[in-house]
Design a protein around this nucleic acid. Structure first.
Lengths: 217, 217
DNA sequence: AAATAAGTTGAGGGTGGCGTCAAGTTTCAG
DNA sequence: CTGAAACTTGACGCCACCCTCAACTTATTT
């Protein structure tokens, strides 16, 4: 007999509650975003908040248990479509519009993309990968001469973060408003549109941290 | 003797508390924005929260008692500088950059401009006036051929609202980040930069309401 | 079927804000 | 100087959310 080592195996009811909680969490997160009260998730799972905490310990952990799959599917799908384009500018546009569309499509993705939850390993990895791809696209499009030469990944981060905020409040009332916002941004990002920027890229040094550490007010 | 009618005149201590509260409110609002806990204001005024509520009744009322002057000074000053420009595009730019700079300069103005507080008569009037001026500038610049023909005041509203959000989180960490954001937006707003927008201006119909009615989450 | 380990529960304590009101204090007219 | 009206106070109840833990229930093992 090989000693199975590892974690001591859960009782069947515990196992079942984990499944129910995950299912409920997916539903609720998708509908209402990642900051929905945990009690609502517990209730939908037909379980007490105590159990939720027993099983997952924290909101972050629950997010980590539930979101990676969803995110990675959507994100790799997006990156796939992006790469179909042969023209670097088209690729850049596809990326920007694609990410924005994800934000608009699901509150949970929006929360994640806006980094409102400094989530754990898996999620961070996935997001960083997508971000790295974005950085590559930025460089390619600059080299190609279609994206303005002074553009940086930081500028893109700002635009998408802003778009996330916008989408959060207009999702129900003006669900297409973001499209104009992004379109104007993209027009401003073209090399032909470029006029001198008032400050250099070093001004964006700390924005990423500013985004991650945001109390909702 | 002419009966003075009107409000029955306050006791001297009440009068004094009102002044103290206003002074404290101005300070605190300017430092930390319009959603600072009222208790902090009462404390700074050396008065209890009860008194604050006695004298003003609500946060909104306090804001209304204290902000109009500040706002109207800054805003009329800005509009004055804007009107110095003879070129419609320059005027538009001066307006956009000016408003953005106000947002960056004081949290309280930012809150107000972002309409997080559906404030009363006076303030609304002042803001609406500035907004109307913005609309005029948009039309002028479009007629002038420098601003893209498909641009609307709604697009400007979105850009400035987004900028307000951006500034709120980057104020301390990356205080110049907004400048690049606004510059890219302006480049995208130029007529020469214009490419077809994906949706018409009707998509922005409800954004104003979306902005005004925002629970912080 | 009994013993026990594993798991669940929900009330309760903590936070941080809002808004109120009975009891105490101050002003001011007479 | 006095008394009534005006004003202030701060503890209190409220809400919404967080997280915990003692008491109870259930699964599993033998």
């Amino acid at each position: 007999m090989i000693p199975t080592g590892g974690t001591p195996r859960l009782r069947r009811d515990a196992q079942r509650n984990i499944e129910r909680l995950k299912a409920a969490a997916i539903e609720v997160f998708r509908e209402r975003g990642l900051s929905t009260p945990l009690e609502d998730i517990a209730t939908r799972a037909g379980v007490s908040t105590g159990t939720l905490y027993n099983r997952f310990g924290s909101r972050e952990a629950l997010i980590d248990a539930v979101m990676p799959e969803l995110v990675s599917v959507r994100l790799t799908h997006l990156l796939g479509r992006v790469r179909e384009h042969t023209n670097p500018w088209r690729r850049f546009v596809a990326y920007v519009e694609g990410v924005a569309a994800l934000q608009a499509d699901e509150p949970a993705l929006n929360d994640l993309i806006s980094r409102r939850f400094p989530a754990a390993a898996e999620l961070t990895r996935i997001c960083d990968e997508a971000l790295a791809e974005g950085a590559r696209l930025v460089e390619d499009a600059k080299r190609h001469g279609s994206l303005r030469a002074d553009f940086t990944i930081g500028d893109l981060g700002i635009a998408l973060w802003c778009n996330g905020q916008l989408v959060r409040v207009t999702r129900t009332t003006a669900p297409d408003a973001w499209r104009r916002n992004i379109a104007i941004f993209l027009d401003g990002a073209r090399a032909k549109a470029a006029h001198d920027l008032p400050v250099g890229p070093e001004a964006l040094f700390a924005v990423q941290e500013a985004f991650t550490a945001q109390p909702p007010r």
